[in-house]
Amino acid sequence: MAQSLNGKRIAILVTDGFEQVELTGPKEALDQAGARTEIISAKTGKVRGWNHTTPADEFTVDNTFDRIHSEDYDAILLPGGVVNSDTIRMDEMAQELVRDAARANKTIAVICHGAWLLASADLVKGKKMTSWPSLTDDLKNAGANWVDEQVVVDGHLISSRKPDDIPAFSQALIEALAA
C-alpha cells in the first residue's frame, strides 16, 4: 500500500452501531497512504462503534451529513454493522450524499451491511457487488448482480463482504484513489 494519497479526502459515513473494525481498518490504511479521512454522521459529538453485537469505542464526529457536500471529497466509505446500516439507510441526507457521489463518478467503497444504504438510495441496479451474505436477497431485489467474492470493483463501486476482507478492500480503495 505504498501509493500516496496526499490531498485526497474520504468521507466515512456512519451512525451509532457501525462495525468498529470496518471503520478503523480502512481508515488506518487510508491515513497511512496519506489521505485525509473524516467521520461524518447525522449528529455532532461522538458515534459508538460495535464489535459485532457488543458496544465498543466512541469516535469523534468531524462533520455532519447536512453540512458536507460530496464534491468536497474524493471518495465515500461506508462501514457496515447492522445497527448503523439499518439506521443510515433511512437518512435522506445520507442517501443524497451517496447519490451525489455516484452522479459525480466518485469512488464509493462499501463493506458488509453498509450496502443497505446504496440499495435504499437506488444505486445498485445493474452493479456487480458483494456484501454480508444476509443482504443477498435485498441487493438482488434492488437489481444488483450479487457475488460471493472477497472484493468486487464495478466502475466506481468497491464492495466487500466482512471484516476478514478488510486488507483486500483497503488495497482496492487505495488503488482506485491513486489511479
Rank of each mutant, 00 (worst) to 15 (best):
A29K: 14
T53E: 14
A115E: 13
Y73A: 11
L97P: 03
R67I: 02
V83C: 00
A56C: 10
A75P: 06
F59W: 12
L78G: 00
A56Q: 11
R103Q: 13
P55F: 06
D57A: 15
E58Q: 12
K27I: 01
I76H: 07
I108T: 06
V47A: 02
D86S: 14
A33Y: 10
V61E: 02
N84H: 09
G114P: 04
Q20W: 04
D100Q: 14
D91C: 12
L77Q: 05
A35G: 07
R89N: 07
R48Q: 10
D91P: 06
E96W: 03
G49H: 06
I12K: 03
R103C: 08
T53D: 15
A101W: 04
T44D: 07
T64H: 06
I39R: 10
A104E: 15
T24S: 13
D62I: 00
T15V: 02
R103V: 06
K125T: 11
I68G: 01
L30G: 01
P55T: 06
L117I: 13
A121Y: 05
I40L: 05
N51R: 14
E22G: 00
L118R: 02
K46E: 00
Q20M: 08
L117Y: 12
E28W: 01
A29N: 08
L78Y: 06
R67E: 12
A75D: 04
K27N: 08
T37C: 05
D74P: 01
N63A: 14
R103S: 10
L23Q: 09
T107A: 15
L23N: 08
P79D: 09
A119R: 12
H52T: 15
D16Y: 06
C112P: 12
K106L: 09
S70H: 04
